[in-house]
Write a protein that binds this DNA or RNA. Structure first.
Lengths: 333, 333
DNA sequence: TTGTATGCGTTATCAG
DNA sequence: CTGATAACGCATACAA
């Protein structure tokens, strides 16, 4: 029992001098006589009535919660996404049920059960579990991970971003490019960054290499590759595109430790749009993901009335952002 | 209506050949005949029964949700805290209701209403709104913000952290110290960092200055102060303690732009324990807040059976972490 | 159009 | 200790 006995719909009905059902209708925006509506609204205000979400959920089988499944909330990209998904949900009167999995597929599967039990009205998931069991009968959309044609996927234009990186590096004077990436060889959305980059390089006719390491590879593998390509190739490597900003940052560290100047000798572009402290300087030159749009789109799709008939894959436009690891005019270090 | 008609307690009761009430008792761990318990448990497993949280909440007035109110989820410290609060709640079978306020006190107050409506079982808030109306009748604990003796506050040992910073800087050879901070002059938990630092300096008998700027001050104010203290003081300023890691990072940028080498000429210590990408290198030498402990303590307190009778302020120990902006043996840049 | 009655799935009371 | 029964607050057919 809360502090003050909660006021219920009956209280409002009595206060307004109308029937219970009428109150319910007013609250749910159903057609009701103007005169009645005003009386009900007055009573609601007077009593400071708040609907009881549990009762509503019990009766309607709709909880007003959307589950958001994400590996963690501390990686800057995920943190930003979490915030915007939360915001987009809030704007539509929904609450978020946050599930961070720690990349543990058992936990992930457990969450799906939990979400099911809580009658969540939908799930937005950013997951890399390959064999995830998607629950039937509940709207499910993914971010950055394509499952199948009946599971809508919202992603950045990863392919276009890769191309853009290649173009920018060429534009900025690079003579030999490379794509460095640690990540599953599986074809997933982020792996298209590499594909786009390759496509861009080929179109530009610029020499390039791809160094795609499996998950969990040590950073030293990057170092070996970089040493070889910078010291023994002709022209030497002078432009690097990385799978994400973390890897770009690591590569920059390696390069500087090797005595390479960044961006004077080698220019580096990452992916994501990570900023110091979430809202300060960009950590590196990067392809920025449209996080607010990703969130807004995911939310609007998962809440879509006609969930079937949604497009299977939506790609949102990215943009290039100088961040000190390229020789853009305005950010010469 | 969900995909498969949800199985209910009655189904379990029928399957187990017992009464409805018995099932409820088993599920809530109330004493029940061993024989009955086994039958019920078997039926639960067989039918894959899951309790309906809405019905439970409706009847019991306990939603199983704890609200977590935080300015944003992208600032690294908040992101980490969010994750650990979520984890601590999950371990106890609770769900988190995430409310990020964007430092908007109207939104904040609105959340409190919403939380109330949703019958949240408690609130954990990290807020800087001075005149926040704390709802009566619902367990409310704060992090890093002291309201009054009946609102428990969990904080890092800010005072001790300030002292520790002074000690470390002295130990590392600094001859003149300064505390730089932007933040309300209000006496709140974080402002104790400065107090601890002052206390440490005085005890050590080392010369020091304090530069405490009001919220919203431009960074240039720091620069003016630094120029004066480094160029025109004797001995020159060579050790800086900042109110948090963001400010430390900004100060380091200013110093380097001024031509000062960090940490060779000036050493800098921040506060929070911020790391690149959430889990990589520390951004600067810093006093690390015990985030997992803060979260765990806040959760355990807000769920405490005897909410009255909790101590009004709990300070958790911090630690010093070299991070490249001090001349510690192991991190000489 | 408005009002009434029933039941959602659970917990709690109370009589066996 | 067990089992029947009555709410909890709301939505929704259905009757007026």
């Amino acid at each position: 029992m809360r502090s003050k006995q909660a006021t219920t719909m009956s209280d409002v009905a009595r206060e307004a001098g109308v029937a219970l059902g009428t109150v319910s209708k007013v609250l749910n925006g159903r057609p009701v006589g103007e005169e009645y509506r005003l009386k009900v609204e007055a009573a609601v205000k007077k009593l400071d009535y708040q609907i009881n979400p549990s009762a509503k959920a019990l009766k309607s089988n709709r909880s007003g919660f959307i589950a958001f499944i994400v590996p963690d909330t501390t990686t800057p990209f995920f943190a930003l996404l979490t915030q915007y998904v939360n915001l987009s949900l809030e704007k539509r009167g929904y609450k978020m049920m946050l599930c961070f999995t720690g990349r543990d597929s058992v936990r992930e599967q457990e969450f799906i059960r939990m979400v099911h039990r809580h009658q969540a009205d939908g799930i937005i998931a950013l997951t890399y579990t390959p064999d995830l069991q998607i629950p039937a009968g509940i709207p499910f959309v993914t971010i950055d991970r394509f499952f199948s044609v009946d599971v809508p996927c919202i992603a950045s234009d990863n392919f276009g971003g890769g191309r853009l990186a290649a173009q920018k590096l060429a534009e900025l004077g690079c003579k030999r490019l490379a794509c460095l990436r640690i990540g599953s060889a599986l074809v997933n959305e982020p792996s298209k960054r590499k594909d786009g980059f390759v496509s861009g390089c080929m179109e530009l006719g610029i020499p390039f290499e791809v160094c795609n390491l499996p998950d969990g590879s040590p950073l030293s593998a990057f170092e070996v590759f970089l040493k070889k390509s910078i010291l023994h190739a002709d022209p030497p490597l002078d432009g690097v595109f990385c799978g994400n900003d973390l890897q770009a940052w690591q590569v920059v560290n390696i390069l500087r430790r090797m005595g390479c100047r960044v961006p004077e000798d080698v220019q580096v572009i990452g992916f994501d749009g990570t900023r110091m402290f979430g809202n300060q300087d960009y950590i590196c030159s990067t392809i920025v993901q449209p996080v607010p749009d990703l969130a807004e789109t995911a939310v609007s799709m998962v809440l879509s009335n006609d969930f079937k008939g949604l497009p299977p894959l939506i790609c949102l436009p990215v943009r290039y952002q100088p961040g000190g690891t390229t020789r853009d005019s305005k950010t010469e270090a």
